[in-house]
Amino acid sequence: MRPDDLLQPTPRGLYCPPADVYIDPVRSVERALITHGHSDHARPGHGAVLATAATLKIMAIRYGENFAGTVQAADWGRPVTINGVTFTFHPAGHILGSAQIAVSWKGLTIVASGDYKRGRDPTAEPFEVVPCDVFITEATFGLPVFRHPDPAAEVAKLLASLRLFPDRAHLVGAYALGKAQRVMSLVRAAGWDQPIYMHGAAEKLTRFYEAEGIDLGEVRLVKAADRKALGGAVLLCLPGSMKDVWARRFPDPVTAFASGWMRVRARARQGGVELPLIISDHSDWDELRETIRETGASEVWVTHGQEDALVHWCGTVGLKARPLRLVGYGEEGEAEPADLAPASTEPAA
C-alpha cells in the first residue's frame, strides 16, 4: 500500500479515501476532521465535524452554534475509528485545543500535524512527538533565516519601550485567536501587573481562554476606557484594526506587532511597524527539523509555507519529501503582515 492510498492532497484539502473524510478542508464537505480553530483550517458548513472540545468551542464562538450538521469531540490520545481507519488527536502546541491527527490503517501511520510549535506556551497544550511513517508538516517559517528568539526577550523590548515612553499607548498587533492571549500571558510572566486592554473583537475568544483556566490577569475592553487616558498602557489590537481610525485615537501610539514575520526587516517595515516583536506560534527552522527527526518518519509531506527549503533539507539528510502544494492555508494566525498590518507611514520622498 502506498501512503497516498490513505491520505492524498485534493483541491478541497487532505482526503482519506478509505474513511471518506477530509482533514482541514477548505471547502464544505460531508465529513471533516479539524486540527485547530484558525479560520483557514476550521471553516463552517461541513456535514459532520470531529475535533477537540476546545476547537469545537472556538468554532461555535466564531461561526455560531450551528456551524456544522453534527459535531463530535475527540479526546486527547483516544483513537476514533471510521471505516477501519483510526484517527487519534495529539496536542500540537500551536493554540488552545490545536491537534495533530495521527491516521493509522493496515500498519501505516501518517501524522497530519496542522500548525505546531515546540516552545513553552502556557496558553496551549504542549506538543507531543507522535512516531509515524509519514509526517505531514507545515513550513510557514521553513527557511534557515527564521530562528525565533526567546519570546521573553521580545516582550522585554515592549516593557523597555513602556518605560522609555510612559506617556505613549503601546498598540500590539496580534491575531485574535491564540497570539493575543499568548502575548497577554507573556506580558504577565514579565511582571506587568497593570490592566491589559483589548480590542472588542478579541473579547469572546479571550474570555473563552480564561474560562478554560488560563490566567491572563485583568483584561479590559478598550471601548470601556477613556482612550485619552491610555498613555503607557498595553493594548492588544487586531492586525486589521491597526490601520483604522480606531487606532489613531490613542495618545501618540507606538505600533508594535507580534509575529514570526518580524524577523525579516522588510516585512516589519512593509507593515509600518515601529516595534517588531518576534513571537510566533509556528515552528522555526530548527524546530521543524528537530520535529521531523524525532517522529522517526521516513517520508515527509510539506503542506504550506516555504516548502522548497524544507523539502531540500530532507533530501540532504536522506528523507523522502515532497510538497503538497495545498492552496488556501496560511491566511490566518500568521498571515502575511502586509495584508493586515497598518499601512506604511513613510513620509513622502
Partner: peptide, 19 residues
C-alpha cells in the same frame, strides 16, 4: 540551495547572512 532560497526571500544579502 538553502542560502539561495533564503536570499531570494529576504531580498538583502547582509540581512540574510546576519540571520
Amino acid at each position: 540551495v538553502l542560502f539561495g532560497l533564503s536570499y531570494d526571500y529576504v531580498g538583502d544579502l547582509s540581512e540574510t547572512v546576519a540571520l
